[in-house]
Design a protein around this nucleic acid. Structure first.
Length: 559
RNA sequence: GCCCCCGUAGCUCAGUGGAUAGAGCAUCGGACUUCUAAUCCGCAGGUCGCAGGUUCGAAUCCUGCCGGGGGCGCCA
C-alpha cells in the first residue's frame, strides 16, 4: 500500500463518516485530499495524519473525539494493521507487513516512472535561468542557477508539467559594448577600459577573432576605423563567448530548449508592439522626453522609463516584449530565476505583468536566490570583472567534479547564502554528502550482482510479509514517500528537498544493509526471504537512481 | 530611510502550525576470517538571535528590536 492509497482510504473514511452523519461537516469543509506524513518518531507508526486536529473546530467536536471516529472506521480498511489516537488528536497508522512490503514490487515494476505524478499536469511552464551575459565565463553565482534551475526543470517534469528551459541571451546594450571595447583594447595591446572586462579570456577571444578573420580572408579588424573594428569584435566575440558558455553548461549537463536573443526583440519590432499594447491599455505616459510605464498603479514604488529620452529602449523594454512573447507562445507560467542582486526588479516585473492584464505570481513567477560566497583561508574571496579575477564554472568543476558541484549547489535552500570554502572543496571531497548517496546506490547494484551470482532471482518469489524488520518498515515508508517529496519540491520550486530526501533514504538503506542480508549466508539455501529482500534492494536502487536523476547527478554502479 | 533573504549543536545546514527540534562533518568510544567499513552502532553537544503577540499547540505566522548579506538608475 502506498501512502497515496492510504490517503485515499482516509479520504473515503472521512467522506463516509460525513455522509452517514457520524461527523457533522459541510461539504466545503471536507478537504479534497488528506495529508499523510511520516511521523517523526518511529514508534508512532508508519504513517500519521493530523486531519482530526485540523477539522475538529469546523466539526464542532474535540480533536480526539473526531480522531476516535475516524480511527474506528480506518481499522477495517484492508492492509491497515493498527490505528492509534495519540497526543492532541493525531492518527498514528501502522500497515500490515505484507501490505507495506507490497510497495517494493510496485516500485520495481514502475521503474523510472516511479515518483512521477500528475500534480502539475497540463501546466505549460517556461523556466528561464542562468541567462548570464555573454561578456565572460559563467561565474560561480551563475553556476548555482544552472544546477538548481536544471534540477527544478526535471522535477517539474516529473510532476507532470510541460517544461521549456530557456536562456535569455543579453546580446544588446551597453554591457555588450563594453565587452567589444575591451576586446578591441586588448587586441591593440591596451589595458581594459575603466568600465570594461579583463582577464585572460578577453585576450584569448581577441586573438581568436583576429585569427578567424585572417583565416576567412577578411580585412584585419585592427586596420579598420574604431567603430567598425569594435563592431567586428562585438559580433564575433559574442558568438565565441556564447559558444563557450553553451559548451560549459553542456559539460555541466545543462542544456536549454531555447536560447532567446534579446537583440531579436528589438529588431523584430516586438518591443514596439509590447509598448503599443500597453499604450492601448492606458498604462503609458510621456514625461521629460521619455516614455514611461505607470507601474505604480500595480504596486511598484515608482514609475519606470521604458523608452529613454534619447530614443533608445531601457532594459525593461526588452523584458516587456520578452514576457509578452512567452505568453503568446502559450506558456501559462513564466518562471524566472534571478540572483538576490536583482530582487529590486521583482516589483516592476510584477507590475508589468499586471499591466498586461495577467495575474502576478501566477502567470509570472520570479524566484530569488541568494548569492554564493567564496571563502579561502577564512576570508571572503574578492572578485572583479575588470581585473578578471572571477571564479568560473571551470574552477568549481575542476575542484570537485560535476556530480559533487551540482549536488552541493542543489542541496541547500536558495533562500540561504552558500559559503563555498575552496580549500575544503579541493582537499576533502569525501565530506560531500553526494558520496554517501552515490555509495548507497553503488551498494544496491553490487548486492544485485552478488544475488545474481548466487541464483537469487526476483521472479522466483516475493513474500512481502517477510519484510518484518524495523529497518525494513522504515525503508519502505521512505520509499513510499518519494512521490510526495517530488510533488512538493515541484510545487514549492525547491529542488533541495529531493537531495535531503535522498540522504535520508541512503541512510535507511545503509542501516538495512547492516542488519539484513540479501544473499544466502554460507551454504544456506536460497529462499523467498532472499528473493523478497532483493525486491526491496532493487526498489531502493530505483528510487535512488530516479532521485539522483532529478538532480542531474550520476548514479554510479561501482565506487 | 525603504525593500528582500538569513540568524537552529563547535562547523555546514534541514525542518513552509504539530508529538521528546534533526542530519552530515568535526571530537570521543565500539563493530569487518562471508553482500563494498565511502558503512554501521554508541557517547557528547541546543535559552531555535532577543522581546512581545496570535491559539489547543510556534523554530515555523504577526509586530518591534539586534546582528549578517543583498538591493533601491532615463545601467544592464
Amino acid at each position: 500500500m502506498t501512502p497515496a492509497e492510504l490517503s485515499e482510504a482516509l479520504h473515503a473514511v472521512l467522506t463516509a463518516a460525513v455522509a452517514d452523519g457520524a461527523v457533522t461537516l459541510s461539504a466545503d469543509d471536507v478537504p479534497s485530499s488528506v495529508a499523510v506524513e511520516r511521523p517523526r518518531q518511529r514508534e508512532h507508526g508508519d504513517w500519521a495524519t493530523n486531519v482530526a486536529l485540523q477539522l475538529a473546530k469546523k466539526a464542532g467536536v474535540p480533536p480526539r473525539g473526531l480522531a476516535d471516529v475516524l480511527a474506528e472506521r480506518l481499522r477495517s480498511v484492508p492492509g491497515v494493521a493498527a490505528v492509534d489516537v495519540a497526543g492532541p488528536g493525531f492518527l498514528n497508522i501502522s500497515l500490515d507487513t505484507a501490505a507495506a512490503g507490497g510497495l517494493a514490487r510496485t516500485v520495481v515494476e514502475a521503474g523510472a516512472a516511479y515518483g512521477t505524478t500528475t500534480a502539475l499536469a497540463g501546466e505549460r511552464v517556461n523556466l528561464e535561468f542562468v541567462s548570464a551575459n555573454p561578456t565572460g565565463p559563467i561565474h560561480i553565482g551563475g553556476v548555482r542557477w544552472a544546477a538548481v534551475g536544471d534540477s527544478l526543470a526535471r522535477i517539474l517534469q516529473a510532476a507532470g508539467a510541460d517544461v521549456t528551459r530557456e536562456y535569455y541571451f543579453n546580446d544588446h546594450g551597453a554591457q555588450i559594448d563594453r565587452f567589444a571595447r575591451s576586446l578591441l583594447a586588448r587586441a591593440k595591446g591596451q589595458e581594459a577600459p575603466e568600465d570594461g572586462y579583463g582577464g585572460q579570456y578577453i585576450a584569448d577571444i581577441a586573438a581568436q577573432v583576429l585569427a578567424d578573420a585572417a583565416a576567412a580572408g577578411e580585412t584585419d579588424p585592427l586596420t579598420l576605423p574604431d567603430p567598425e573594428a569594435q563592431e567586428a569584435f562585438r559580433r564575433r566575440g559574442v558568438e565565441l563567448m556564447f559558444g563557450e558558455i553553451r559548451a560549459k553548461l553542456h559539460e555541466f549537463r545543462v542544456d536549454f530548449d531555447v536560447y532567446f536573443h534579446e537583440d531579436s526583440l528589438h529588431e523584430s519590432g516586438a518591443v514596439q508592439k509590447a509598448v503599443a499594447r500597453l499604450r492601448e491599455l492606458g498604462h503609458i505616459f510621456e514625461a521629460d522626453g521619455a516614455t514611461w510605464l505607470r507601474t505604480t498603479e500595480f504596486g511598484d514604488d515608482k514609475d519606470r522609463v521604458i523608452i529613454k529620452s534619447d530614443g533608445t529602449a531601457a532594459y525593461i523594454a526588452g523584458d516587456l516584449a520578452y514576457y509578452l512573447d512567452k505568453r503568446e507562445r502559450g506558456f501559462d507560467r513564466a518562471i524566472i530565476m534571478l540572483g538576490a542582486d536583482h530582487h529590486g526588479y521583482v516589483g516592476r516585473m510584477m507590475a508589468m505583468c499586471a499591466a498586461f492584464g495577467d495575474t502576478p505570481w501566477t502567470n509570472l513567477e520570479i524566484l530569488i536566490g541568494q548569492m554564493v560566497n567564496l571563502v579561502k583561508d577564512g576570508e571572503p574571496v574578492r572578485m572583479s570583472k575588470r581585473a578578471g579575477t572571477i571564479l568560473t564554472i571551470d574552477d568549481l568543476v575542476d575542484a570537485v567534479g560535476v556530480d559533487a558541484a551540482r549536488y552541493a549547489l542543489a542541496r541547500s535552500s536558495t533562500d540561504s547564502m552558500i559559503d563555498l570554502d575552496l580549500d575544503l572543496l579541493a582537499r576533502a571531497t569525501n565530506e560531500n554528502p553526494v558520496f554517501y548517496v552515490q555509495y548507497a546506490h553503488a551498494r544496491t547494484v553490487n548486492v544485485g550482482r552478488n544475488a545474481a551470482d548466487l541464483g537469487v532471482r526476483r521472479e522466483d518469489g516475493f513474500d512481502p510479509s517477510l519484510l518484518d524488520h524495523a529497518t525494513e518498515s522504515t525503508l519502505l515508508a521512505l520509499i513510499g514517500d518519494f512521490s510526495r517529496v517530488v510533488a512538493q519540491a515541484a510545487e514549492l520550486r525547491e529542488p533541495h528537498r529531493v537531495a535531503r530526501y535522498l540522504e535520508e533514504l541512503a541512510g535507511a538503506y545503509h542501516k538495512w544493509y547492516d542488519q539484513r542480508r540479501v544473499t544466502p549466508f554460507g551454504d544456506e539455501e536460497v529462499g523467498d526471504v532472499h528473493r523478497t529482500r532483493l525486491w526491496l534492494n532493487d526498489a531502493t536502487r530505483q528510487v535512488l537512481a530516479n532521485g539522483l536523476g532529478l538532480l542531474g547527478v550520476g548514479a554510479p554502479e561501482r565506487m
